[in-house]
Design a protein around this nucleic acid. Structure first.
Length: 306
DNA sequence: TACAACAACGGGACTTATCG
DNA sequence: CGATAAGTCCCGTTGTTGTA
C-alpha cells in the first residue's frame, strides 16, 4: 500500500498544503528516515516540480514560488497530473520498462486507465477518518450515483441532503465535495470532514446542463489582485501562502476573499503598503470603510469634548 | 531452488548554511 | 557560539527479480 510513488505524491501534497516543511517532519509523517525524504525530494525536483530548500533554523522545504500559484484549489484531475509527472519520473529511472513499473502495475491493476490513477491518489494524504468517505464519493462521482448524507454546516446546523456529486476538490489539505443539491436546486460545496453518514444510492443521475448559469466563484467570493510592498514581505508570505508571485520590487497576490468585511480588514491592516490592482469596486469599498472609521472616531472626540 | 543483482531504505558521521 | 536543518558520503540490511 505504502509505495514510493504514494509517498512522493504525499510529500508533494504536504508541500502544497503547508508553507514550509522540514525533512524531519516529513520523515515522521510518512514513517521513513530523513535520509529517504532527501532522496524523495530530489526525485520530486527531477520530476519537474520545483522544491526550494532553506537551511538553518526555521529552514525546510517549500514549493517554489510561481508553481501552482494561479490556482485556488485542485480537482482530482489536477492531482492526477501531478501523479503522472511523478509516475513518469519513476518510469524513466534507469531504462524503459523497469521492475518498479511492473511492481506498480501489479499493486495497482487499474493504473493503465485514468480511473486507476485517481484511485491511487485517494489512498494517501487523506486523514484516516475521511479516507473512506472520499473513496465512496469518488466512486459515486464516477458512476453518477446519487448520494445521501447528513451534513453539519459551519454554523452547526445538521441537515439531511440528497446530492448529485460532481467533483472532489482539494484545497490546502482539505477535501471538498462539489455537488448539485436537490433541495436547494443549485450547486453547493461541502467539506468532507463535516459529512456524517454517507450513503451511495443505486439511483443514478444525468449530468445537468446548468453549468454555465453563474460560476460559483462570482457568487461566493471576491477575486482580488493585490500588490504589496516588499517591506511587508514576511507577513504577506504567511498570510497568502501559495498565492504570491514576485514582480520586480513588489509582491503580487491573487486571492479570493469569501467575505467582504474580511477582505477590507485585511487590506486596511497593511496600511499604505498595499495597492489594489483589481477589482475597482474593492478600492471604493476600502475608501468607504476608512471613511466610516474616521467618522466613528471624529464623533467620539466630539462626544468627549461636550 | 539457490544465488547473484539491484533497488529502496536506514544509520552514523560528517559538512555547510543560517539565525539569534 | 550554539542550535537547527539541509546536504553528502559510505556502508549495511532487506526484499524483490532474474537466472542458472
Amino acid at each position: 500500500m505504502a509505495t514510493r510513488l504514494d509517498r512522493l505524491l504525499g510529500i508533494t501534497l504536504e508541500l502544497m498544503a503547508k508553507k514550509r516543511v522540514t525533512a524531519t517532519a516529513l520523515a515522521d509523517k510518512f514513517e521513513v528516515s530523513v535520509r529517504t525524504v532527501y532522496r524523495d525530494v530530489e526525485l520530486i525536483n527531477q520530476a519537474g516540480i520545483p522544491v526550494a530548500s532553506f537551511t538553518g533554523a526555521d529552514g525546510g522545504f517549500e514549493l517554489m514560488n510561481g508553481f501552482f500559484l494561479t490556482r485556488q484549489y485542485f480537482s482530482v484531475d489536477d492531482l492526477s497530473v501531478i501523479y503522472s509527472l511523478l509516475k513518469a519520473m519513476e518510469e524513466t529511472m534507469g531504462g524503459a520498462v523497469t521492475p518498479a513499473m511492473r511492481k506498480l502495475a501489479s499493486l495497482h491493476p487499474g493504473l493503465a486507465d485514468e480511473g486507476g490513477q485517481k484511485a491511487v491518489l485517494l489512498g494517501i494524504s487523506v486523514p484516516e477518518q475521511e479516507r473512506h468517505i472520499v473513496e465512496e464519493l469518488f466512486r459515486a462521482i464516477r458512476q453518477s450515483r446519487v448520494v445521501q448524507m447528513a451534513y453539519t454546516s459551519a454554523s452547526g446546523s445538521a441537515t439531511e441532503r440528497s446530492l448529485e456529486p460532481l467533483n472532489l476538490l482539494w484545497e490546502k489539505g482539505v477535501w471538498y465535495l462539489e455537488a448539485y443539491c436537490r433541495r436547494r436546486g443549485a450547486k453547493r460545496y461541502f467539506r468532507v470532514s463535516r459529512i456524517d453518514r454517507l450513503q451511495v444510492l443505486d439511483e443514478t443521475f444525468a449530468p445537468r446542463p446548468i453549468t454555465d448559469e453563474l460560476e460559483p466563484e462570482d457568487l461566493q467570493g471576491i477575486f482580488a489582485h493585490l500588490r504589496f510592498d516588499l517591506s511587508v514581505r514576511i507577513r504577506v508570505l504567511e498570510q497568502f501562502p501559495g498565492e504570491c508571485t514576485y514582480q520586480g520590487n513588489c509582491i503580487e497576490v491573487r486571492t479570493v476573499f469569501y467575505k467582504k468585511e474580511y477582505a477590507l480588514s485585511v487590506i486596511v491592516s497593511y496600511g499604505t503598503n498595499v495597492d489594489i490592482v483589481s477589482p475597482d469596486e474593492l478600492q471604493d469599498d476600502v475608501i468607504t470603510y476608512i471613511e466610516a472609521i474616521r467618522r466613528h472616531y471624529a464623533k467620539k472626540r466630539e462626544g468627549d469634548a461636550t
